[in-house]
């Protein structure tokens, strides 16, 4: 059996990639995808820990996280479409009417 720590390290790497993606990429679509990567990194860690401790709690939580992620994407894409219609771009840097 592969030791749990490998899964955790992999999930940490995925999470870091997600964080960097949100911070570096400018296209809102890619930003949302990076957020998904962060959530799925957490899912991987949860499942790995659940396997290590032989409890189902961690696996059940993954379902909740997946559901929340889907709901977030639904709202996120709606906002994205609205922005694209009125500004013609999905670049997060150009969405800057508000500042001060």
């Amino acid at each position: 059996m592969v030791p749990t720590i490998y899964y955790v390290l992999l999930s940490a790497a995925l999470f870091t990639m997600g964080v960097l993606g949100v911070l570096i990429r400018r296209n809102a679509m890619v930003v949302f995808m990076s957020v998904e990567l962060m959530l799925n990194a957490a899912n991987l860690a949860l499942v790995a820990f659940a396997r290590q401790r032989l409890t189902v709690e961690g696996q059940v939580i993954v379902f909740f996280v997946i559901t929340v992620a889907a709901a977030e994407v639904a709202v996120g894409l709606a906002v994205l479409v609205a922005i694209f219609r009125s500004k013609g771009t999905a670049d997060v840097d150009e969405v800057s009417t508000l500042k001060g």
Binding site: V22, A28, V35, V79, I83, S86, V95, L98
Partner: peptide, 9 residues
């Protein structure tokens, strides 16, 4: 819309 976008991200 922009506020929603910022808040959402």
């Amino acid at each position: 819309e922009e506020a929603a976008m910022k808040y959402l991200v």
